[in-house]
Simulated scan of single mutants.
Amino acid sequence: MIFTNEMKNILIPTDFSENAWNAIRYAIELYKNEECTFHLLNTYTPAIASSRFMASGSSTVMSGDGARLHSERGLKEVLLRIKSNSYYKNHSFKTISSFSLLIDQVKETVEDHNIDLVVTGTKGASGLEEVFMGSNTVRIIKAVKNCPVLAVPEHFEFATPNEIAFATDFNRFFTQSELRPIFEMANAFAATIRIVHVQYEIKALTELQQFNLNMLRKYFADVEHYVHTVSELNSVSKTLEVFAKELDIHLLAMLNFQHSYMEKITREPVIKRVAFHTQIPLLVIPELGMGKPSTNKERRAMSVSD
């Protein structure tokens, strides 16, 4: 598999929270040795007057202007904070302040700016309410169909991802294009890939599962990799959490498709996945299928060649 050294475009939505700042800092460190353009996105929607009988006037205009100014000022402050903390000469930064809904703008930006990866912070529990990765993160993962999403836990401090877990049940055939983000991470950090299969009860693989496993082994032939079969502990999310902790995993990767582990986890009862969202960065790769390019760059290159 061939990888290009083209400049990467990374999209990082921010609401100016410490949670979002941690995701920015993680992304910068992750790509410190690569030429990157980071697109920092903040969306805003001015407060709508509560009374439908209120006449439009200067107060409504000020509300919109105030939201826009807050967004633009916040992005400028983020840029200053980046340059005073961790700044690399091979990195450039662009800001996008948009009067839009977050998910709509993320999808549009991925297309318009040829984004290779979306990096977002994930929120932990708040009071009695347990939030799995944060509702915005889950919505981004579900909405973005043509770009990987990296979810960074709220308090996670950067660690070089030289141990990467790839969770799969071998029931689906994966294409090389779909696995490309994992290959790139493994190559960039000389990482070991640990293919982890969670079983409710340990039993032999079916013929289909064995075929898919054999294909994965061929794909990963040039990368140090191991296959781990583990018994389910209460839930898939809890099992992966324990696995990651015991093997000191620095990044967990999953493909997002119907009946995948990712889908199972998002549907698990909240009480079962309480600890999962606070552990390690999660790389979620969209389903591409046979013959489809893995990135916007590849799709555009194919359209030009045609």
Score class of each variant (00 low, 15 high):
residue 3 F to I: 13
residue 7 M to I: 07
residue 8 K to W: 02
residue 8 K to C: 03
residue 14 T to M: 02
residue 19 N to C: 15
residue 31 Y to H: 15
residue 43 T to Q: 01
residue 44 Y to K: 00
residue 47 A to C: 02
residue 55 A to R: 11
residue 57 G to I: 06
residue 62 M to V: 06
residue 66 G to E: 13
residue 69 L to N: 10
residue 69 L to V: 06
residue 70 H to R: 07
residue 71 S to A: 15
residue 71 S to D: 03
residue 76 K to S: 12
residue 86 S to D: 10
residue 88 Y to G: 03
residue 97 S to N: 02
residue 104 D to M: 04
residue 105 Q to C: 15
residue 107 K to A: 14
residue 107 K to Y: 05
residue 108 E to N: 11
residue 110 V to H: 05
residue 112 D to Q: 14
residue 113 H to I: 01
residue 114 N to Y: 09
residue 115 I to K: 13
residue 116 D to E: 10
residue 130 E to Y: 11
residue 134 G to A: 10
residue 138 V to R: 03
residue 146 N to C: 10
residue 146 N to V: 10
residue 149 V to H: 00
residue 151 A to W: 00
residue 160 T to N: 06
residue 167 A to D: 08
residue 168 T to H: 10
residue 170 F to L: 12
residue 180 R to L: 13
residue 186 A to S: 14
residue 188 A to V: 01
residue 190 A to E: 11
residue 202 I to W: 02
residue 209 Q to I: 01
residue 211 F to Y: 12
residue 215 M to Y: 09
residue 215 M to T: 14
residue 216 L to Q: 06
residue 216 L to I: 07
residue 220 F to H: 09
residue 232 E to T: 11
residue 234 N to T: 13
residue 234 N to H: 12
residue 240 L to P: 08
residue 248 D to Y: 10
residue 249 I to M: 13
residue 252 L to W: 06
residue 272 K to T: 03
residue 277 H to E: 03
residue 283 L to K: 05
residue 285 I to S: 04
residue 285 I to P: 00
residue 292 K to R: 14
residue 304 V to N: 05
residue 305 S to R: 09
